[in-house]
Design a protein around this nucleic acid. Structure first.
Length: 879
DNA sequence: TGCGTCACG
DNA sequence: ACGTACGTGACGCAG
């Protein structure tokens, strides 16, 4: 087999990647999306082609010969956006680090270099592949030269491939004739003037008929249509110029050695460093551990596996003010412990023989009496080492979250990079691969010690920088008084869990199943065939193609079959109602009945995880299972709440804030009308309607009230006339009028929201009443969509976030009061504005007083925080 | 794995 | 002109 060479059009692929992918930046705000996209496509092609040689060609910035000709003629060049421009040197740097040959030459475009190398290589007897985003390159296709054009449509990349034959099939002309086409049609992007009045159709006809522009002129009288003939006649010199401009030079005088272009090891240490800095996490896994640089920190790792040594170690640790801790543990087992006493003194203790997990945990409980334990995830730590005093611990993960809540994970290597002067530590995956801790342990992976020590090191070393940053940014109080105590509150909620009746859940699931099968049958019958109703794609085909229903909104992949679309179609055909019911039941069965049943523990209770470092606004989230989205709005779904029950001798007490976000808005904006409204009104939406629509309170119609309610919601979400119009099924204009009237009624709300956006733009972040920050990089975006999103976020986050702060404060206080007063009752759930307490029957009175006092008293606002409370024998009754 | 959908606040 | 309400998590499908 002959050798293969891959030639890449650097700028054009970078361009493709830039425009095809969302604007990606690393945590320093450096734009990296185009480089990332480039590398992804490079690896994909390398994988497919496995070439022996590889070369990437770039234009230089100075104008080339061909451009000069036309610039002189027309004098225009297109500008490159700054976000892309700064990535050009970056991709060159990465390619160089990977040992990839780059060519460019003053006075020559990348096209010319590619053309020259393609012709030269073909002559050498090689197979040539050219990767470009530019169709001009098609003129280079031959039997041996393959042109590959990546296309990004709907987010994914497909590649079109062209040898001579494919060019002819697609364009009806041979590759060299592509030049003629292009010269006739012109190309504004490429600054080729072309012949006025000649487009793709005419050009193709002409070349198919005459073969070349010259021949067309030779038979000018035969050229049709007349318009084109006249234009050709008039613009002869334009045709000549265009052809020159469109022709890629295949004989450029470049020095080129195949030896240098030979593909070598791409995954070099230099490339690793770069990918790490750019935060290309997916790419890092491609690197072999062998290329990872030796880290000086590692020389300070010590293994400690004898009892007396460990005793001495804990003794030494107890003299420190604080230490870094990493506990290697999962739900079942403890595998080892890392302790950092100093930056240069880190120990690893594997669980082994007399050094049991229990022993280590007991030692740490002791250690906590004298020394602050710093770790990445204190809540996980508490699962094995129960502590009660928040002053005994420091959580660097939560600190890092507060400082930037937009990250999706808070891993030690990220934190080290961020807070320890950019130090690059090997990530978990570098050390342990994708294996679970258990697996790594069983195969006694030697990465365990490094993993544990790096984590302990990071916890130790970043404590001070994180603490300082929190103080500098005004978030120390949020950390110290809200988030840190909340760790203990959430830990307790997770440990208690909530009792769920598994048997009844099964019965409920079976009932659903019966009806689901009925509906299935009915739907198949009406549709005339069996299909997967759960597949939006198949469903769309049946409804909108086979049955001919009017298809509305489109999604990326086809027709939308979302509920709001189907509801509007319900009158068109009875099948739609059945589908909606089917959907509802299928959801209830799969997400609630079945999966809830599968996570009931041996104690008969569900122990959800409450995440403290997920949301951008400061809310907590709940996973495995999510107990914050148990149905309540529809009766059938709401019934599920009957299986959530308190244990014997207890009842549920459920307390929720009434319209907390609107009250927060009233307070933060200081709008007297809204504040006054809250001081007077039972029904805020009715009152809003009466004020906005200028009708007496008693005469507000239900429609007016509904509209006012939607506007109130809209305000909290960062109002837009479009969003409101969608929600209310009214025109944008009407929605805009509602909003205008609303702002007339509550003028300070308008200036408050405007102020938030202005503040966000100026500072790059917005804050809650308590100082919690949310960065909003989107506000700086040049993209209208992104920027608008940023503006809505700027309006919403302080409100949602303040409400989140308030309920967190309330949770902590309720938790502590229950503890202090020695009660048996316990907080078991939080659902954003709602707390559920499993209450000992004889403690009902005191607990309801605690709830009321602490929830209402959690924040001092200019309007009352109102709390609704209900008790019941299950969650359904208590809500 | 990403998307569409839908459950909650 | 752009094309959407804010914040989440889980499921099933399709590639």
């Amino acid at each position: 087999m002959s050798d293969k060479i891959l030639l890449i059009d650097g700028h054009s692929i970078l361009n493709r990647a830039f425009y095809g992918l969302p604007d990606l930046t690393n945590s320093e705000g450096r734009h990296t999306g185009a480089v990332y996209g480039f590398l992804n496509i490079l690896f994909r092609i390398l994988d497919e082609e496995k070439p022996k040689y590889l070369t990437v060609a770039f234009d230089l910035h100075e104008p080339t010969f061909r451009h000069k000709m036309y610039d002189a003629y027309k004098g225009t060049r297109k500008a490159m956006p700054e976000e892309l421009r700064e990535q050009v040197p970056l991709i060159k740097e990465v390619l160089t680090a990977m040992g990839i040959k780059i060519v460019s030459k003053p006075g020559f475009e990348a096209d010319d270099l590619l053309g020259t190398l393609a012709v030269r290589s073909e002559k050498e007897g090689m197979d040539v592949t050219i990767l470009s985003g530019d169709r001009d390159l098609l003129q280079l296709a031959t039997e041996k030269v393959l042109i590959r054009l990546p296309k990004t449509s709907r987010g994914k990349t497909t590649i079109e491939n062209f040898h001579t034959q494919e060019v002819i099939e697609k364009y009806q002309v041979t590759p060299p004739q592509i030049i003629e086409l292009k010269a006739l049609m012109g190309d504004s992007a490429d600054n080729i003037p072309g012949i006025p009045g000649v487009g793709e159709k005419t050009a193709t006809k002409m070349i198919v008929e005459f073969g070349s522009i010259e021949n067309a002129y030779a038979h000018l009288e035969e050229v049709k249509p007349n318009k084109a003939k006249e234009s050709l006649r008039e613009h002869y010199d334009m045709a000549v110029l265009s052809k020159t401009l469109a022709t890629i030079n295949t004989d450029s005088p470049i020095d080129y050695s195949y030896e240098e272009a030979e593909l070598k090891e791409l995954y070099t240490p230099e490339a690793y460093q770069l990918c790490k800095q750019l935060e290309f996490k997916n790419l890092l896994s491609k690197f072999d551990t062998a290329v990872m640089p030796e880290n000086p920190i590692e020389q300070n790792f010590f293994s400690c596996s004898d009892l007396s040594g460990v005793d001495a170690l804990f003794k030494k640790a107890s003299d420190k003010a604080y230490v870094g801790i990493s506990l290697l543990a999962d739900k079942e087992n403890i595998y080892g412990l890392g302790i950092a006493l100093e930056k240069e003194e880190i120990y690893y203790i594997p669980v082994e023989g007399l050094l049991t997990g229990d022993f280590l945990c007991a030692s740490m409980k002791d250690l906590a009496k004298t020394t602050v334990l710093c770790a990445l995830d204190i809540k996980q730590f508490l699962k094995h080492v129960p502590l009660e005093d928040e002053t005994q611990v420091f959580d660097i993960g939560i600190g890092a979250y507060l400082l930037n809540p937009l990250k999706s994970t808070y891993t030690y290597d990220d934190i080290a990079k961020e807070y320890l002067d950019g130090v690059l530590l090997p990530a978990r995956e570098d050390l342990l691969g994708k294996d679970s801790l258990k697996k790594a342990w069983e195969s006694s992976a030697d990465g365990l010690m490094a993993y544990s020590c790096y984590m302990a090191y990071t916890a130790f070393a970043s404590r001070i920088p994180i603490e300082n940053s929190l103080k500098d940014s005004g978030m120390w109080k949020v950390y110290r008084e809200i988030e840190l105590p909340l760790i203990f509150t959430l830990d307790s909620m997770e440990k208690y869990g909530i009792c769920v009746k598994g048997e009844e859940l099964k019965i409920y699931g079976k009932k659903l199943q019966v009806r689901i099968e009925e509906l299935e049958k009915q739907i198949y019958e009406v549709a005339g065939e069996e299909f997967n109703i759960n597949s939006p794609k198949q469903l769309g085909t049946i409804l909108f193609e086979k049955m001919g229903l009017p298809g509305g909104r489109k999604t990326k992949t086809g027709y939308s079959t979302a509920a709001d679309i189907l509801e509007k179609l319900a009158a068109e055909h009875p099948i739609v109602k059945d589908i909606l019911e089917y959907r509802q039941l299928a959801k209830l069965k799969s997400t609630y009945a079945d999966s809830l049943a599968s996570v009931i523990g041996p104690d008969g209770r569900i122990h959800s995880t409450f995440n403290q470092t997920i949301t951008a606004t400061g809310r907590i989230s709940s996973t495995e299972p999510n107990l914050q989205n148990i149905p309540v709005r529809m009766e059938l779904g709401r019934l599920i709440r009957k299986v959530f029950v308190p244990e014997e001798g207890y009842v549920f007490l459920d307390a929720d804030y009434s319209q907390i976000e609107l009250r927060v808005l009233a307070h933060m904006s200081g709008d007297e009308t809204l504040i006054q409204a809250y001081r007077e009104a039972q029904d805020i939406h009715r009152l809003t309607a009466s004020q906005v629509f200028h009708v007496p309170f008693e005469e507000v119609t239900s429609l007016q009230r509904r509209n006012a309610k939607a506007v109130n919601f809209g305000i909290v979400y960062g109002i837009s006339s479009f969003g409101l119009s969608q929600d209310l099924s009214i025109t944008r204009k009407e929605a805009a009028e509602y909003i205008e009237k609303y702002f007339e009624t509550y003028p300070k709300i308008k200036s408050f929201l405007d102020g938030l956006v202005a503040e966000g733009k100026e500072k790059g972040y917005v804050t809650t009443m308590f100082g919690r920050r949310r960065p909003i990089p989107e506000l700086k975006s040049g993209n209208f969509m992104q920027r608008s999103f940023g503006e809505r976020v700027a309006m919403n986050s302080p409100i949602q976030g303040t409400a989140a702060d308030i309920i967190k404060i309330a949770m902590n206080r309720v938790y502590k009061r229950i503890q202090q007063e020695g009660l048996k009752s316990r907080l078991v759930l939080q659902v954003h504005d709602e707390l559920l307490i499993e209450t000992k029957k004889d403690e009902l009175e005191i607990v309801s007083r605690i709830l009321e006092e602490e929830m209402k008293g959690a924040a001092k606002l200019s309007v009352e925080l109102e709390v609704d409370m209900h008790e019941g024998g299950n969650w359904y009754e208590a809500k």
